[in-house]
Nucleic acid binder design. Sequence first.
DNA 1: TCAAAAGTGTTAGATTTACACCCATGA
DNA 2: TCATGGGTGTAAATCTAACACTTTTGA
Lengths: 225, 225
Amino acid sequence: MTTYYSEFQKVLLSVDCIIFGFDNNKLKILIGKRNMDPGRGEWSLYGGFVRSDESLDEAAHRTLRELTGLRNVFMRQVGAFGNLDRDPGERVVSVAYYALINVKDYSERQRKQHDVEWVNIEDIPQMYSDHNNMVVKARKLMKQKIKTDPVGFQLLPELFTLTQLQRLYEAVNGEALDKRNFRKRIKDMDFIEKTDLIDKKTSKRGASLYRFNKKAFTEDKTFKL
Amino acid sequence: MTTYYSEFQKVLLSVDCIIFGFDNNKLKILIGKRNMDPGRGEWSLYGGFVRSDESLDEAAHRTLRELTGLRNVFMRQVGAFGNLDRDPGERVVSVAYYALINVKDYSERQRKQHDVEWVNIEDIPQMYSDHNNMVVKARKLMKQKIKTDPVGFQLLPELFTLTQLQRLYEAVNGEALDKRNFRKRIKDMDFIEKTDLIDKKTSKRGASLYRFNKKAFTEDKTFKL
DNA sequence: TCAAAAGTGTTAGATTTACACCCATGA
DNA sequence: TCATGGGTGTAAATCTAACACTTTTGA
């Protein structure tokens, strides 16, 4: 292969994943203690290096898959992080991605095996390098996205109650929402379908279970929560 | 220097600039014909390689400065573009940035010297590699940004008329705005100050010139256009 | 029987949109 | 004198936000 730009220096490229989950009415991300130098033992996002035979998006999906076994996960790029001092070893530029997964799809067995934990978004510890910055930016982008696109369902089980959905939005927005106003808006969206199933886990009376119908959400629809 | 991650392959990193300008009531970007292989002769964004002694942001500012001579320009990262087939030579991952400049700050002399042109955002030709994608994403981000942050003034001269400001927002939004409603909103923003100067270039009667007072735009202010 | 979560409408206030005419001036 | 762009206010419609009580049922 011809080397066209041989006079320029190359750098290592990595991807880092901000993996969002929703559990116990809290927005969380999956992080672990770093098990390699430099920075061994520090809290860290899960990441990996970009291979020469894959795009950035592919590298992000592969990295997530290695950790969780999940495919076809909703992921979006957060941005490239390339400060000179971001890695104490040699220079590494990292491209951050956020992912939205349903915590139930990630087994405790796998979680323990990889030694990662679900940490409340409000209680993120000091992390390795610029990982806290990545989380801040990811959270900002995700918050924006979830307001105007029906992606929040990625964080919920297939069937969910309206209270669960509301709690999710409250956790993401960081503030309480009015129950009646919230449900009014949901009712206007015919792609959020009421099933005839009842969830009795959280109340004696039971709450109707709803489902997001992807196919019913066509171009002409709008989403705003 | 110790090489920590020596088993991984490195890649070339570049930055590409989407340089927005506003002239003749049109939103434009600065592009030129590529003068190197691969892709010689194709329309292209202005870019350059990231050096080993600079961050991505620094590389973007330096690249813009090499082209325009301008410093302290408003720039924001668009994202990293890393598909395998994006560069026909060897692999290059590029981080795109958009910049907002006042066309008057860029001399015709320099423009011609670098052989670049202001092209209407609606008439962007087919460009090299994935540059069109970069422009699409940059435009989306810029449109969002300009709605909620007072950055549009970067595209205007220090003194501007309200009609100019309106035309700018119309060009960015891609739709006409109501003159009275627009001016009502401006009046609520005390950081957009009326001067006692009159511009007679575009009308016989003359229009008041306004100025954005950066210092008056403090934390507590909001911006929404 | 009572505690706890589910479910349900109305109204006031705020925001947004639509809309038309007079003014000043140079050519 | 007239063509051109500058400048101004009001009213209807829409959207948003605030708010409280009844229902169901398992413990």
